[in-house]
């Protein structure tokens, strides 16, 4: 658990939850402290997680609608006072980090509630986050504060929904029919 220990040592109190699955470590941090957490992980001598591999959103809705999972989530909720225990935040943003020095990877996660979809952008740390943040906005509606150019990336600008959310139907709602072509 060497990497795990180092991450714990580096982030300390910022960690809300930490898990490991088949060797992949996922750390959950407070969503307001994501920039600080990533900066610390990058600047830490022993970790130097200095490469942002990817960044994306995730919809948890279906996940916690199953009662079994709800119970499991419960114990990790202690630190978030403003949220009621039954309703953990709906969205997650996952940051995949890589250390070019030691070739280790880790995931950093934040949870974003549905009623306040604002997260601070990490484009100041990593330019690599520019499009992935736009895509997360496009697909889930998560807004990244401080992003230089936050607009839809893959869908067209007037697209009314957020397609990767779990409540969006696979075959769409026929938005393309209302598209106006030309001037």
């Amino acid at each position: 658990m060497q990497l795990l220990e180092r991450i714990k040592g580096c982030l300390g109190g910022l960690i809300i939850d930490i898990s490991e699955f088949h060797g992949d470590i996922a750390v959950e941090v407070d969503r307001f402290k994501i920039v600080e957490a990533l900066t610390r992980l990058r600047d830490d001598e022993s970790l130097s997680m200095n490469f942002l591999s990817d960044l994306f959103g995730l919809d948890n809705k279906a996940f916690y609608e199953k009662p079994k999972k709800k119970a499991k989530k419960g114990d990790a909720e202690g630190e978030e006072e403003e949220k009621p225990k039954e309703l953990p935040p709906r969205f997650e943003v996952v940051y995949l980090l890589l250390s070019l020095k030691t070739n280790e990877r880790m995931m950093v996660k934040i949870r974003v509630p549905e009623d306040d979809l604002e997260v601070s952008s990490v484009t100041s740390l990593y330019k690599a986050a520019t499009w992935p943040e736009r895509e997360a906005f496009d697909m889930f509606g998560i807004r990244f504060k401080g992003h230089p150019n936050l607009k839809r990336l893959l869908m067209w600008d007037d697209f009314p929904a957020y397609p990767l959310r779990k409540d969006y139907p696979l075959e769409g709602r026929g938005e393309e029919r209302s598209l106006v072509y030309g001037d």
């Binding site: 995730l58 279906a62 995931m107």
Partner: peptide, 23 residues
């Protein structure tokens, strides 16, 4: 099983990674 992983290979263009979460 429940869990999330990220696995990447060196595709001809560079790092091609798949993040998967099972439920």
């Amino acid at each position: 099983s429940e869990g999330e992983i990220y696995s990447a290979i060196e595709s001809p263009n560079g790092e091609l990674g798949f993040y998967l979460r099972g439920d």
